[in-house]
Write a protein that binds this DNA or RNA. Structure first.
Lengths: 129, 129
DNA sequence: ATTTAATGTAACCGTATAGTTACGCATTAT
DNA sequence: ATAATGCGTAACTATACGGTTACATTAAAT
């Protein structure tokens, strides 16, 4: 069976774009800001030290990741948080939560020491042949 | 009080490097792989379609983010998962969990409609003066 | 009808990423 | 001693990113 490709849950369709969108601190800050309520683009931009076009591009990426929704309101472009895609991220992390939830970390260390011993044994074995 | 800079929890020291490390799907897949047990670098690399040096560089980033630990074992470099930094990511997402946990999303929509109405009122107001 | 306000986009720049091949250095095997 | 393994690093390339300034567009204000 040779573990060809593991479960590789890291590469779920949307997840990819989402993780990438979250990689930038400014973008995360924008989301944090939007958590307190929707705002027009300019107002968002004014909360950051970078230029407005820079924020505009960040918003484009956030849109592409469906982390925000936009709707026109007069000459304003109001941005609204859409936390839905974060569920995918959450569910990915979920798989790791058990590692820090209990003493599994120690257990893991033990299991690995075990593996190391096995490897060592295998090595000695090959030496003999 | 004018919400000068929000809480901006997006920019916590280590969090930055962690999010960045998770941005790449291959790196996340490496972590997924390591969840099943520690492995030497070469074995990790053999699980992916890219070259070994490519994985080596990914491992360097994961090391920098303290998401993996490395220890030499003979001529092998065994990599071990260290989920600890993921807690920071988890706690960031935590703040968003409430949004999909209940009907708060709808409530949010309502509040925003409210805001919109306020804005509209303010606009009409300014028009008068 | 003009002007002003609110945004997005284009063009450009510097730097980081992800990947490749070639090479160097230990450590184990022969 | 020499060969082979296992890895990391260097050098190089192509592409994406984040930022800036200049320009285009649409809607509101005068």
């Amino acid at each position: 069976m040779r573990e060809r490709s593991v479960t590789h849950s890291a590469a779920t369709p949307g997840r990819e774009i989402t993780f990438q969108a979250l990689a930038d601190p400014t973008r995360r800050a924008v989301l944090d800001l939007l958590r307190r309520g929707s705002q027009p683009a300019g107002q968002i931009a004014s909360a950051f030290p970078v230029s407005r076009p820079a924020i505009s591009k960040h918003l484009r990426l956030l849109r592409r990741a469906h982390l925000v929704r936009e709707h026109r309101e007069g000459r304003h472009r109001v941005y609204q948080l859409n936390p839905e895609p974060l569920r995918a991220v959450d569910s990915w992390i979920e798989q790791y939560r058990v590692f820090w939830a209990s003493s599994l970390n120690n257990l893991k260390a033990f299991v690995e020491a075990e593996h190391a011993r096995e490897r060592e044994a295998a090595r000695k074995q090959r030496k003999k042949s």
